[in-house]
């Protein structure tokens, strides 16, 4: 089971991308949970997630979130402007798995 968290302001703006990712995960039967959270929740959730994805609009949080995640080995990635703009759930989910050294 792979646990993925999407972080953005208030967890709202990534909701469309979240839906696309969940749809794709279901389509291919990937064993994962994907949820969106407010950026302020990062400290609480760093230990519970496998991958933390950061919305491009708060990419300046990257360093801080990486610091929070490092002790737990949680992987961190900033979603690119283009993938976020296209709401490309497939690409983002594939990239997230690649971070863990897995393929979909």
């Amino acid at each position: 089971m792979v646990k993925i968290g999407l972080f953005c302001f208030a967890g709202m703006s990534t909701s469309v991308l979240l839906k696309k990712m969940q749809e794709y995960a279901q389509e291919i039967g990937a064993d994962c949970t994907i949820n969106a959270y407010a950026e302020t929740k990062a400290a609480d959730l760093a230990s519970q997630l496998d991958v933390v994805l950061i919305g491009p609009q708060i990419k300046y949080y990257q360093k801080r979130i990486e610091e929070l995640c490092a002790p737990y080995g949680t992987k961190v990635m900033v979603i690119s402007n283009v993938d976020f703009g296209r709401m490309d759930g497939k690409k983002v989910l594939t990239d997230a798995y690649a971070l863990l050294g897995k393929t979909l």
């Binding site: 709202m12 609009q57 402007n81 976020f84 703009g85």
Partner: peptide, 16 residues
């Protein structure tokens, strides 16, 4: 729909 509820990141990054 997100825009009507005052969230427009999809547009800001998608248009872009």
């Amino acid at each position: 729909v997100p825009s009507i509820f005052n969230v427009n990141e999809p547009l800001i990054y998608g248009l872009p």
